[in-house]
Design a protein around this nucleic acid. Structure first.
Lengths: 194, 194
DNA sequence: CGACTATGTTGTCAATGGAAACACCTGATG
DNA sequence: CATCAGGTGTTTCCATTGACAACATAGTCG
């Protein structure tokens, strides 16, 4: 063993990465600052320099999660071609897939903890936010989506996807139903159901 | 002070009640077995007789939550008169109100913790389950809801409500939008939107 | 060279969940 | 009535955890 340097160098990033993994494998409850420190090979108090608080770590995770989710939805959208239904479906699928893979993280992202505060969260979720808004207004212009306040529609769409994710990750809806639920959702919103 | 008897008498019920209150006021994180024991005026190990585990307590809370939610939705449905839209709206409102009042509890109920196990959860949620199913099949018979697998429609409806609740309790949707979202949901499902 | 600051380390505390061993009650049974 | 078995509560103990304070180290910049 080369004796590791006194300074880790990028502890913050290492902690976040390890935390994300643990979160995926053991959920929020299983996330311990001390354990993260151990895995990073640093002392138990080191993380404190980067995260004042356990909650601060969770917040940072949520922020990173929003960034990633936003990217993935954007990417799905960009690769979905011209057809509006296909775009909507692609976005929904990306969302639900993220939820399935990182259920605990999504829970964290939508936890009420950071509700009122004007932190970095809003900024991180902006990418996702605008992706959804674009999709909505585009659909409304094309007449594929019902008219009305686009903000409300956006909320409703996100709510539905969020709910589907919750149902799936809680096991209250069988995983195999995911595609069917997405199909129904798209149909519901685009009124293409006869 | 009369010295309290060696046996509390109904510790389990007392613990659950206290836990529900704490859950409402401080969320899941703030729920400590030892604290509950203190409030019940009992030694810190006493709860163990009734809940093997912290998780066991949470499960019991979730179960009770499902029972109550089921009752409340049923009651709303029963008092909503004949009009189908009104019934749907009443049920949705009851659901969302529950979510607003007991956000942490709902989170617990839909947490993945008890996913696979054939515990008492399914039984407790049956009342809610059947209420939703009745509502759906009734709407489909009347032609107010779109045709198709009622099970899928049920999942989709619950998902949407669940999502609305999540958005509201996370502060990502303003509380004032609750009614508007419910209205939109009813419209979306009943296709009465124009 | 000599602070200054960021980043880690050690040591310590109180609270917590969990477990074992023991004490008290109550009700069923003979 | 006597007793005894099981349910319920108590004490005591342990390992883990988040938080904090005091100190160490290492680059940076005057």
């Amino acid at each position: 063993m080369t004796d590791r340097p006194y300074h880790h160098g990028r502890l913050r990033a290492a902690l976040l990465a390890a935390a994300e993994r643990t979160l995926r494998e053991q959920g929020t409850e299983g996330l311990s600052l001390r354990d993260l420190a151990r895995r990073a090979g640093v002392s138990h108090a080191a993380p404190r320099r980067h995260f004042a608080d356990r909650q601060a770590l969770l917040d940072a995770l949520a922020e990173a999660g929003f960034a990633r989710l936003g990217d993935e939805v954007r990417a799905a959208l960009d690769g979905a071609g011209e057809d509006y239904d296909a775009q909507l479906r692609a976005a929904a699928t990306a969302y639900v897939r993220f939820a399935a893979r990182d259920a605990a993280l999504l829970e964290l992202m939508f936890s009420a903890k950071n509700a009122g505060q004007p932190g970095a969260l809003p900024e991180a979720s902006e990418r996702l936010f605008t992706a959804a808004s674009d999709l909505i207004s585009q659909g409304q212009r094309a007449g594929t989506l019902p008219p009305g306040d686009p903000e409300r529609l956006r909320l409703l769409l996100i709510a539905t996807l969020q709910g589907i994710a919750a149902l799936l990750t809680s096991g209250r809806a069988p995983a195999g139903q995911a595609d069917a639920l997405i199909t129904d959702t798209v149909a519901l919103f685009t009124r293409s159901q006869r």
